[in-house]
Amino acid sequence: MEHDHLIACHECDALFQKPRLGRKRTARCPRCGAILYGSASGRLEGITAMTMAALITFLIAQGFPIVELETNGITSQTSLIGAIVALWNEDMQIVAVMVFCSTFLFPLTELTALLYLLIPIRAGIVPPGFNQVLRAIQFVRPWGMIEVFMLGVLVTIVKMVSLARVIPEAAMFAFGALTLMFVVVVTFDPRTLWDVAEGLGVLEARRERHARDGDGDDGDAHADQAGRDAGKPGVDGTAAPHQG
């Protein structure tokens, strides 16, 4: 029994054979009706575009001031990096490192790693270090806290209004847009890329086999494909139960 081709329902713990889904298909548990997993191939274009836009917005948010404060004729501006440096200079190194990691390092790592995987896979290529990069995304995702930082900035602005004139700058709007973009990005489960990469590997192996054997084995190839297709679900279909 090959455990790599099995999947367990997260609702009723039933064990099923894991079919390869077509575009925009979803596998459901026939016992309880819960969604086992969905096909990622139909979302690759949209999530790639959203990730690229989020990365550009992230760079804008880091490169411009967040707010401008004016009090008693004195005007000051600050950016995220400037706030981190100020925390470090105030002997708050631990807080500075936590803010740097949660609002800069981990979100940047997730976005760049996703693009590193998505762009080659859309072109039909599995990039080097695929498994390691995918695990890195799973590790850093819970620690990216752009939305928490945005909430803290809004609370600070509300408190500072009574003390100084607060003017939102470009990075403020960029962080707001970035928060919404991250909501879309985190809904994409990068683990589904394993299915896409596996499919690309199967196709590549099949091409190499045909290149070696020529056209003489076409009948066997069609028979193998028909056998595999028999266990595939339809649109929003159910997965075939595993026969142990």
Rank of each mutant, 00 (worst) to 15 (best):
M1V: 00
H3N: 13
D4P: 00
L6S: 01
A8E: 14
C9K: 07
R20D: 04
R20Y: 11
R20E: 15
R23Q: 08
T26E: 13
R28H: 15
R31T: 08
C32W: 08
I35Q: 15
S39G: 14
A40S: 13
R43C: 02
G46E: 10
T51S: 12
A54T: 05
L55E: 07
T57R: 03
I66T: 12
V67I: 14
G82Y: 02
I84H: 05
V85L: 13
E90K: 15
V95Q: 11
F100T: 05
F100L: 14
T103L: 14
P107K: 00
T112L: 08
L114K: 10
L115F: 09
L117F: 07
P120A: 12
I121K: 06
R122M: 15
G124L: 06
V126E: 06
P128L: 02
N131R: 12
R135K: 11
F139S: 11
P142Y: 01
F149V: 00
M150Y: 10
G152P: 04
L154H: 13
K159F: 06
K159D: 08
M160S: 09
L163H: 11
R165N: 08
I167G: 04
E169H: 07
E169N: 05
A170K: 11
A174C: 04
F175L: 13
G176Q: 14
L180M: 11
V185K: 01
V185M: 02
V186N: 07
T187I: 00
F188K: 00
R191D: 08
T192D: 10
T192A: 09
L193N: 04
V202C: 01
R207N: 12
R207P: 04
E208Q: 14
R209W: 05
R212C: 07
D213Y: 01
G214Y: 00
G214P: 01
D215H: 03
D217N: 06
G219M: 04
A230V: 14
G231S: 14
G237M: 06
G237S: 09
G237I: 08
T238M: 12
P241W: 09
P241R: 10
